[in-house]
């Protein structure tokens, strides 16, 4: 554990709390892509299959349980509790275009041909593109509530902070995980446009609006 990874994990935690707070205080999941949230459940469940077989630390286990539980809770909020505020007609990104290629990549690039290793690899690839339905929705509507942009910024910062963590681990432990690094760079890259607008508009007190 180093400071970058820890801050990244905190940022990831913060993003989830911000999202739940947004849904509960506005009593609405408007502007949130159900497809992205559903993919996150798949990401956490496939990645943390080792929860019952591998023990790393209390921290690691608690976080895994939290990510699985909170992502399921968000689906519940969107599909049951605040269902009328969820508008599937603007959440039109085709998720199968993400899952298919990620499954192929996972079969080619993995650290061992076992069910758990291939699913772990799939979860890494899938996470890297999981935000696309959400960003696509943002692009379509052209605007977002400020709280939603804080959620996205925290979520983007999480994987961005893992990059210095990987650099640090390379020099301090000689540890390299090429699958995570490649996918993590792609994942962070997808946020660059968003970050630009977030820093130049939202943090200057303006509303998040994309140019027409």
């Amino acid at each position: 554990m180093n400071i970058f990874r820890f801050l990244g994990d905190l940022s990831h935690l913060a993003s989830i709390f911000i999202l739940i707070h947004k849904i509960q205080t506005t009593r609405s999941c408007r502007g949130i892509s159900f497809k992205t949230q559903a993919v996150y459940v798949a990401v956490f469940v496939t990645r943390y299959l080792d929860l019952f077989t591998t023990f790393v630390s209390v921290y690691n286990t608690s976080m895994k349980i939290f990510f699985i539980a909170s992502s399921c809770y968000i689906l519940y909020l969107m599909k049951v509790r605040f269902r009328p505020t969820n508008d599937p007609s603007i959440d039109t990104f085709r998720v199968e275009y993400l899952v298919g290629p990620c499954a192929v990549l996972a079969l080619i690039f993995n650290y061992g041909y076992s069910v758990t290793e291939v699913l772990w690899s799939l979860s890494i690839f899938l996470e890297s593109v999981a935000i696309l339905p959400q960003l696509f929705m943002l692009q379509r509507t052209g605007e977002a509530e400020t709280i939603t942009t804080h959620y996205l910024a925290a979520l983007g910062a999480y994987r961005a902070l893992y990059i210095p963590n990987w650099i640090y681990r390379y020099f301090s432990e000689g540890y390299v995980d090429p699958i995570s690094v490649t996918a993590g760079l792609v994942q962070t890259g997808l946020y660059l446009d968003f970050f630009y607008v977030y820093f130049t508009k939202v943090l200057q007190g303006q509303k998040f609006e994309l140019p027409a």
Binding site: D9, H12, T54, V56, N60, F67, D177
Partner: peptide, 10 residues
């Protein structure tokens, strides 16, 4: 070598 990829990250 699976031990070098212990998946200790989240």
């Amino acid at each position: 070598d699976p031990s070098s990829h212990s998946h200790d990250e989240l």
